[in-house]
Design a protein around this nucleic acid. Sequence first.
DNA 1: ACATTTAGATGATCGGTGACATCCTAGCAA
DNA 2: TTGCTAGGATGTCACCGATCATCTAAATGT
Lengths: 200, 200
Amino acid sequence: MRMSKEAAAASKVRIIEVASRLLRERGIEATSIADVMAAAGMTHGGFYKHFQSKDELVTAALDAAFASHVERFDRRREENGTQAALDAYVDEYLSPEHVTHAGFGCPVAALGADAGRSSAVVSSAFSRGTEDIIERYVRSAPAGSDVTTSRRAAIRRLAAMVGAVVIARGVGPGALSGEVLAAVSEMENFPLVPRPSRTS
Amino acid sequence: MRMSKEAAAASKVRIIEVASRLLRERGIEATSIADVMAAAGMTHGGFYKHFQSKDELVTAALDAAFASHVERFDRRREENGTQAALDAYVDEYLSPEHVTHAGFGCPVAALGADAGRSSAVVSSAFSRGTEDIIERYVRSAPAGSDVTTSRRAAIRRLAAMVGAVVIARGVGPGALSGEVLAAVSEMENFPLVPRPSRTS
DNA sequence: ACATTTAGATGATCGGTGACATCCTAGCAA
DNA sequence: TTGCTAGGATGTCACCGATCATCTAAATGT
């Protein structure tokens, strides 16, 4: 049965939203188009009226996941200020809820490994999104900070948090999982104590 | 045709070695048994004479990957001392070669996300291996260090390195990839500047 | 030494499922 | 009224994990 233009557009949005969640939960390879369409309340037959390929859906879903992730941060910064938004971001990121609910969590931690194995379009969507997150973090640096220094500190912190969540998810529920989250929570915000650079 | 006991055992070892590499390169879901057997120079039919299921192979391959990873560190420590082994480990970990050659790299960075989505046996194999890596790192702490402090610092460093490699792989070749590796390379070895702990 | 047993490897096959394509139909839009 | 199109039903082809009959040579018992 045919739907109105608005309803059709809403369908596409719903497909992307559902895909954005399922992909983060199950991974790219393990998520089928039929799964996504069924979760969106449709059969898989109509999928290709909205997207040309699975890759196109994955790219759209990745963009949506990064967008909602970043918007959440921006909204909190407007409401509660930069420092509060930053603290809330870190606390949420390193929470057990984030570890167990990958479907609504950071796309970097959930799909980083998958993105590296995917096609160039997916990988570049991932790259854009990651850059967006880093930028939000850099802008949260104390006023008058050196941009290069702030950026490196931001990357360092993001890397530590991504690694913590990946490890916590990988080891499954248990003591080690919480220990990892706690250890990274103790990390200082903007350190820069250089160690001798790589020689090779 | 039937082979000798030694040849059969060698076949099993070869299957595990190949699987250990392919799984890290392509991910668990994207690696088929036929792929592994073909890369090991056999057809897929004989697989079940060696393993009862794919999960059993994945577990064995994970154990092997962690073992070779840890043995490499131990060997270097015996030959060149703890500090040199530690430096070499970090340098190698954060090298572009590690990013592009996931098949021979750290199983935590390559399969962390996949392990979290897999069965309990796979997840626990991943957990054991991760704990082994952390232990090696803790033992490399300066003599007289507080064990808890050292362990948290070790976890923090491992998390940062895992995150760096995951991000570098996800964003694909480009400036950001190298930037991430460089930023984490500048991380100090054993910091412990506590920030206010999570409130929620 | 030799017959019997056993086990590694093969290739075909099975049920299930993947991505993707092709019609059909129902109803909005011109 | 009628063309257009979202989405449902169905089909194709490839591949997945797993099983099987079959072959063959190593292992084993006498």
